[in-house]
Design a protein around this nucleic acid. Structure first.
Length: 269
DNA sequence: ATGGTGGTCCTACCA
């Protein structure tokens, strides 16, 4: 029995509904986790996605900004939407999926980008990002193990933690997403929660991985100044069943693309 | 060194 999951910052689900459709049709993950849907709940294209066989949809959206969604072929149980930092932002949703006789809670996150200035004293957006990370440290991958529930955490975490997660470690050390306070913070979230970085379990640390390329580059592909901002983590009990991780780089070259590409992970039980 | 592009939704804000 297998299970496949995809995570994708879509940067407007309504504008890019055709891309979401073709991803689901051509690659058919069991679960697609979207971030930055930028869509109020009453305007989410639920009916369109159900037509493709994704009967179980849980959304947490707001007008204009943020927004996360779970689009699933498998039932979604005990859906939770947590208000990190109590700002009313729609940045988290989770649910339990019955997978091959197991139970897996999937958390889908959109971590604040943090603005331009990496100083929490002068930039409230950066302070918010650090506060958000602090709150994430309380999330344990084995929190529901006693109830027989494993965990997966995916999403746009807006941090590239390793030197090989950016095109130039030295040039990005003072750039938000790769500053030491952020990369250390994310590693601490990972360590305290007992999370396994599945992308790095599958792809060696000396190999560069990017999931995001700025819209502002003249030629994103040629300059290749990317960052790994999107992540797939799991509780330790699932990591041995990981069979594949794929970063869909070609999606950045699609017409009217998101600046992030989908990341797929597959488990075989 | 600076500004480059793209999204939402009406004008500026966010990434």
């Amino acid at each position: 029995m297998g299970f496949s999951i995809a995570t994708w910052n879509i940067n407007s689900v309504r504008l890019r509904l055709p891309l979401v459709r073709s991803l689901l049709t051509d690659h058919a993950p069991d679960l697609l986790c979207l971030q930055e849907t930028k869509c109020p709940n009453d305007a989410f294209p639920t009916a369109d996605l159900k037509k493709l066989g994704y009967d179980h949809i849980a959304i947490h959206g707001q007008k204009g900004y943020h927004g996360v969604a779970l689009i699933s072929r498998l039932p979604l149980e005990d859906v939770q939407r947590r208000d990190y930092c109590e700002k009313g932002d729609t940045r988290h949703i989770s649910a339990i999926l019955p997978v091959a006789g197991r139970k897996i809670r999937v958390h889908n996150f959109y971590v604040p980008a943090g603005g331009d200035e990496p100083d929490p004293d002068v930039n409230p957006k950066f302070a918010h990002k650090l506060d958000f990370l602090q709150e994430m440290k309380a999330l344990h991958s084995q929190a529901e193990n006693a109830a027989g529930v494993s965990s997966i955490l995916v999403g746009d975490l807006n941090i590239a933690p390793l030197e090989t997660d950016v095109w130039s470690h030295k040039q990005l050390l003072k750039v938000v997403s790769h500053t030491p306070v952020e990369t250390d913070g994310l590693k601490e979230v990972q360590a305290k929660g007992g999370w396994v970085d599945l992308m790095r379990q599958h792809i060696p640390e000396d190999e560069k991985i990017f999931t995001w390329w700025s819209y502002r580059a003249r030629d994103w592909d040629a300059s290749d100044r990317g960052r790994r901002l999107d992540h797939v983590w799991s509780s330790p009990d699932l990591s041995g069943s990981l069979s594949d991780v794929t970063v869909m780089r070609e999606a950045r070259g699609w017409e009217r693309p998101s600046d992030h590409v989908p990341v797929f992970a597959r488990f075989d039980f």
